[in-house]
Design a protein around this nucleic acid. Structure first.
Lengths: 228, 228
DNA sequence: GTGTTAATGTACTGAACGTTACAGTTCATT
DNA sequence: AATGAACTGTAACGTTCAGTACATTAACAC
C-alpha cells in the first residue's frame, strides 16, 4: 500500500529542509557528525559539483538514507558542512592578544600578527574551503557571507581595534583604522594566498615569506607615519 | 619574491588531443570559433563541472560531433576556451603608457594605473574567469599558469618597470620594484576583487571605490618616501 | 558533373549520480 | 521484555551527460 506521496512540491524552492535535521538518538548524532566530517573531505577535495554523495557515504560506511534524513539534499549537506567549518574557524583561530602590551613594539606586534594571518590563511584546509566558497559563491550567497564573517571579518575587526587603540595612544597616525586594517591584510595576505588559490608551485617558503612580510609591515608603518 | 618554477612536474596526463584540432575548411573555422564562444559563456556561467556540452552545442546550433572533432574532450574544449580568453586578455588590456611622461605627477600616474587595474579586474567576465580558474586550478595547473602570465603577471611587469625607472630617476625610493609592484597591486586590487569573487553585495561603487584607491596610493607613496 | 574528403546531424550507449521507497535493524523508554 | 520510533542498508528509478557510430550533407579539386 503506497503511502500518500508528498509530491506536491511547489514551484518555488523549499530551501529549508522540512525534515527534522536533528537526530534524536546518540548513534544518530555520531552518524551525523561523521557524515559532516566525510563531506568536508570530499567536498573540499573535489568541489561541490564533482563530489558524489555515494563517496561520502562509502567513506563513513553509513548509507544514503541518513544523508537525506539529516540534510535533505546534497546542497543541505554542503551547507551544514560549511557552517560547521565556519564554527570551527571561529573556535580555533585566536589571534595575537587584544591591544598588545602597551610597551611592546608596534612593528613586532604587527609582524607577529602578519605571520599568524598568513599561517591561518595558507593552511591547506583553509585554501580548499576558500576555493569551494569562491566556486559556489553564486549558488550559496548566504554561505559565502557566513564564511566571510567567520573568517576574514574577525581578523579585520581585531586588527582595526588594535590600530584604533594605537592611534588614540598616539603611537600611530591611523585615522581610518578599518581601511588601514583592510590595507594591512591586503599587503600581507594577498600574494601567497593568490598563489595558493591558483595552485601555483612552489609556494613561498619560510624565509622568503618572512622577508616579504617584514617588507609589508614596514611599508604599512611608513604609511602610518610611525613615531619610533 | 617571485620565485621561478624550477622544474616541470612529470606529466602523466595525456592532455593533448590526438585528433587534428585544426579545421581545414572555412565553415569549420567558423564553427570552431562559434563553439569556443559558446563554451566561454557556458563554462564561465556554470563552471566546468556543471556545464554540459549539449548546452554549448545547442547554443550555436551545431552538433557534438564537431566538439569532439576539434577539441577531443570536454577538458580540451575548456582548455582551448581559456587559452583563447588569455589571448584576448593580452590583446585588449593596455595599461597606462610605459614610463609616463617624465614631468607627470607620480601620484596621478599611479592613481590612473590603479583605476585601470580595478576596472580590468572587476569586469564581470574577468571575475567569472577568475572563479573558474580557481575552482579548477588543481585539474588544469598549466592553464592556471597561463592565465596568471596573461593577466596579473603582465600588469606586474609593467608596473615594476615604471617603478624602477622612477627609482633610478630619484623620484621614488623603491629599491625592490618587483616587490613594490606586488604590494601596490595587493593594496589596490584585493579588496574589491575579494568581494566580487565571493559574490558579496554591494560592490564598492564609483565614489567610495575611488576614495579607497586614493588612500591606497597615498599609503604606498608614503612607504616609498616620495619626494614631492 | 564526379569523386573524395571533411563536417554535421541524429540517435544511441553506458555509466554516474541524486533521490526515493521500503523493509529490516537498532535504540530509548517503560 | 516489549514496543514504537529512530535509524540504516539495499535496491531501484529517473535523469543527465560525456562520448561514439553512422549516415547525410557540404566543400573542394579536377
Amino acid at each position: 500500500m503506497p503511502k500518500v506521496k508528498p509530491q506536491r512540491i511547489a514551484e518555488t524552492r523549499p530551501a529549508k529542509a522540512p525534515q527534522p535535521p536533528v537526530p534524536a538518538t546518540r548513534r544518530g548524532e555520531l552518524r551525523r557528525a561523521a557524515l559532516i566530517d566525510a563531506a568536508r573531505d570530499i567536498f573540499l577535495e573535489q568541489g561541490f559539483a564533482r563530489a558524489s554523495i555515494d563517496e561520502v557515504v562509502q567513506r563513513v560506511g553509513g548509507s544514503k538514507a541518513s544523508v537525506y534524513q539529516y540534510f535533505g539534499s546534497k546542497e543541505g549537506l554542503f551547507g551544514e558542512m560549511i557552517a560547521h567549518q565556519c564554527q570551527q574557524l571561529i573556535d580555533s583561530a585566536e589571534f595575537p592578544g587584544r591591544g598588545g602590551a602597551p610597551g611592546s613594539d608596534v612593528e613586532q606586534v604587527l609582524l607577529q600578527f602578519a605571520r599568524r594571518v598568513v599561517q591561518l590563511f595558507l593552511a591547506p584546509a583553509r585554501i580548499a574551503m576558500h576555493r569551494a566558497m569562491i566556486a559556489e559563491a553564486e549558488r550559496f550567497p548566504e554561505l559565502a557571507e557566513r564564511f566571510y564573517e567567520a573568517g576574514p571579518k574577525r581578523g579585520l575587526a581585531l586588527l582595526s581595534a588594535y590600530l584604533r587603540s594605537q592611534h588614540e595612544a598616539g603611537t600611530l597616525d591611523c585615522p581610518k583604522p578599518e581601511w588601514s586594517a583592510i590595507q594591512f591584510m591586503n599587503l600581507v595576505r594577498t600574494y601567497p594566498m593568490f598563489r595558493a588559490l591558483h595552485g601555483m608551485q612552489p609556494m613561498p617558503d619560510g624565509e622568503d615569506l618572512d622577508e616579504f612580510l617584514q617588507h609589508a609591515v614596514r611599508l604599512f608603518l611608513d604609511g602610518c607615519r610611525i613615531k619610533r
